[in-house]
């Protein structure tokens, strides 16, 4: 048995015993410390942390999700200590849940098209004896779905706001051949029951920050940004706010009605729609989300908070752009949608 010391960003130390062959994530969960994580198989990068002391072994993982393995970077769902370990967590103690992640049942309320290759899925939670009937989550968080009839799990970010009606909304980009995408595209019907786990995740707004906010999303990364923007619209913030959203082709762009809703709620919001391979008639930005971010930051603004959500390649490019414009690492908030 080894001992793991978890060190949070705000300086809280948590000691956890770890059995041979047990991952850090599992050892912490056994002590009722539920660390932010998603796929559980080394693909998504959600449980990324840094080991400052001690030896360990990493199980199989995607190099995209762990680019800094040589510098002590680890994925806690794959990290098995050899001896006592000190792990630096990139979040505060408040982000560690002390209760088991809730398991919920929900029913499909509606499925609608949201641009080419994407669906808006609305669910109604079934009341739970201990959790009640509301949809209680922090904007930016996600739920994990069990694909009906299979053991496979998939995570999707919530696009709506927490509410007491028990309604959950997701913006899901269909992946050809993907397990949940196939279900959604071919089988799912209104009234179907789904098993969910969550909410989870620590991608959330730094609400106390007075800095301009730049939200950058690509491909399937729209949902949590939409949730954050809807949340911001409720609080009449004063700072400049920007949404940079990139897709490969124009037809993949989010429905215009969604952009209109966001603009109506946040009068100071500037929306930059970027298309990587546009048609000749495209009137928005031509290029990737990262290139659009580069152009935006080049215009000059007070040092912003940057929120990034999308696939790892987009995140890497956008993070590099933000860094090149001197946005400090601690002001860049990332939600990786790998896996």
């Amino acid at each position: 048995m080894t001992e793991i010391t978890l060190l949070t960003r705000d300086g809280v130390r948590l000691n956890v015993p770890c059995a041979p062959g047990q991952t850090v994530l599992a050892a912490a969960a056994a002590e009722n410390l539920h660390l932010p994580a998603m796929c559980g198989c080394g693909n998504c990068g959600q449980c990324h942390a840094h080991v400052s002391t001690g030896g360990y072994e990493m199980g199989a993982y995607s190099p995209v999700a762990l680019p800094d393995a040589a510098q002590g970077g680890v994925l806690l769902c794959r990290c098995m200590p050899h001896d006592d370990l000190v792990v630096e967590l990139p979040y505060d103690d408040a982000n560690i849940s002390r209760r088991a992640i809730p398991e919920r049942e929900a029913v499909i309320e509606s499925i609608t098209q949201a641009g080419a290759g994407a669906m808006m899925l609305a669910l109604q939670l079934r009341p739970d004896e201990t959790l009640g009937s509301g949809a209680d989550f922090i904007p930016g968080q996600y739920m994990e779905f069990t694909v009906p009839g299979m053991e496979i799990k998939r995570a999707y970010s919530l696009a709506n706001l927490p509410n007491w009606d028990g309604r959950l909304e997701f913006l899901i980009r269909l992946v050809p051949g993907g397990a949940f995408s196939t279900y959604l595209g071919t089988q799912a019907t209104v009234g179907d029951a789904l098993h969910l786990r969550g909410p989870m995740g620590h991608f959330k707004l730094d609400e106390a920050s007075p800095r301009p906010r730049v939200l950058v999303g690509g491909g399937c990364g729209a949902a949590p940004l939409v949730s954050l923007l809807r949340h911001m619209a409720g609080y009449q913030e004063w700072q400049p706010e920007y949404l940079v959203f990139g897709v490969n082709r124009e037809e993949e762009m989010l429905p215009q009605v969604l952009f209109d809703e966001l603009r109506a709620g946040l009068p100071q919001l500037r929306i930059i729609q970027a298309v990587w391979h546009p048609s000749q008639g495209w009137g928005g930005f031509s290029g990737t989300a990262a290139e659009a971010l580069d152009a935006l930051l080049a215009e000059g603004m007070e040092s912003p908070d940057v929120y990034l959500c999308g696939p790892p390649k987009m995140l890497g490019a956008a993070r590099a752009v933000a860094g090149a414009h001197d946005v400090p690492t601690e002001r860049i908030f990332i939600e990786s949608l790998a896996g």
């Binding site: 004896e129 959790l131 509301g134 007491w164």
Partner: peptide, 14 residues
Amino acid sequence: AIVAQAAKALPGFA
């Protein structure tokens, strides 16, 4: 009204 709505949606004392 939202306070009452939240109270109804939350579990209350068992």
